[in-house]
Design a protein around this nucleic acid. Structure first.
Lengths: 198, 198
DNA sequence: ACAGTGATAGACCGACTGTTCTATCTACGA
DNA sequence: TCGTAGATAGAACAGTCGGTCTATCACTGT
């Protein structure tokens, strides 16, 4: 009955945390999150149980958004699986060139959350599986002999490009990854099916 | 005159910090570092000026060690540039499969040190340039038409494999990266060979 | 009119942060 | 033997951490 004129504390908290954890890392203080959201301290603990809960929820929402973005980018590229996959790397080029780009949020989260039991890890893991499956589905449509393995390769290229985009932006990593992605995709056409299940 | 029977506080501090910052991230407390090194509090500030100085020095030393390791791995593979480059990916496969593997230390440092002015960033940046140059030199020996760009591609594959090794170890990312590295290296010849090597 | 609900502000907590300090001990050189 | 340098232990600093608490305000439906 609200959420129309104003987002409400929970939404504001998620929005602020999504932005602040990305810009300043997972180490941002609770106070900064509260001030950024304009929200009472108590609201955080009532809605998310604590900082870890908030972070996990931020990762979950980001992952859903980013997966949807992948799908939209691919859909905008038409029906040809090859064009759809390459469009991903073009999009990554834009993202990496953006002003506020500070590296892949999920990789940063996995590296920063030292505790392997942190629920955030499960979120990032499942997100990667979904993206890899997204790629594999296109490759399967192309008749690729190893769609799953090649999908993993594409995800590796994506992660590499996102990492290099943060550390060596001058080398145009998205274009470099795109070139290699073409090789991966090309294996669907002019390469014999090697071994089934390598 | 010393350093023979016992490493001395400075060395012990570097050793402990190298280990602890990798295992628990850059967020480890000073107390943990001191306890891990068995060193007095004051020694840290006399030798390194503070935690940031220690971290920077740890990155510097790690980078020197890892660059030397790259060279050793390549030298052990003989003289053929192709074999020397691929040996790197085989080595990464071993590293990633190791028990204590927790991701690339330099990428983690860049993502964790939110302050872009932190001196650690310069260390990691120069390290990556040296490694990329290392690759480019081998590619030039192979007569690759774009050794610098291809060296960047190999570094992207390395970073992607190291990242995926931390987040999706079951997908054998080193092998996936190695396959793509073969494509990069293969461009040195007039015709892309396309001969499956797996 | 009134209780219920959810949000607010902000004091407060113990634990921990990086840092500075004094004081003591030990080893080496003059 | 004495002085100095370097290392030690550990108290203490102000600040921040994540989290709990009380109290107040605004809105809602009955």
């Amino acid at each position: 009955m609200s959420t129309r004129t104003e987002p409400g504390p929970r939404q504001r908290l998620l929005d602020a945390a999504q932005e602040l954890t990305y810009q300043h890392g997972m180490g941002v203080g609770v106070d900064a999150l509260l001030k950024g959201a304009g929200v009472a301290r108590r609201s955080l603990y009532e809605h998310f149980g604590g900082k870890d809960g908030l972070i996990t929820e931020v990762l979950r929402r980001s992952a859903a958004e980013d997966e949807a973005r992948y799908r939209r980018t691919m859909d905008a590229a038409g029906h040809d699986p090859r064009a759809r996959l390459l469009a991903v790397f073009d999009r990554i080029g834009e993202i990496v060139a953006g002003d506020g780009y500070r590296g892949c949020r999920y990789l940063a989260a996995d590296l920063a959350l030292a505790d392997p039991e942190h629920p955030g890890h499960a979120v990032t893991r499942e997100y990667r599986e979904r993206v890899a499956a997204l790629f594999a589905a296109e490759l399967a449509r192309l008749g690729h002999p190893r769609p799953a393995a090649a999908g993993d390769q594409l995800l590796l290229l994506v992660d590499g490009a996102l990492a290099a985009g943060a550390t060596r932006p001058a080398t145009d990593p998205a274009a470099a990854a795109r070139e290699l992605a073409e090789q991966v995709i090309g294996q669907a056409h002019d390469r014999p099916p090697l071994e089934p299940r390598a």
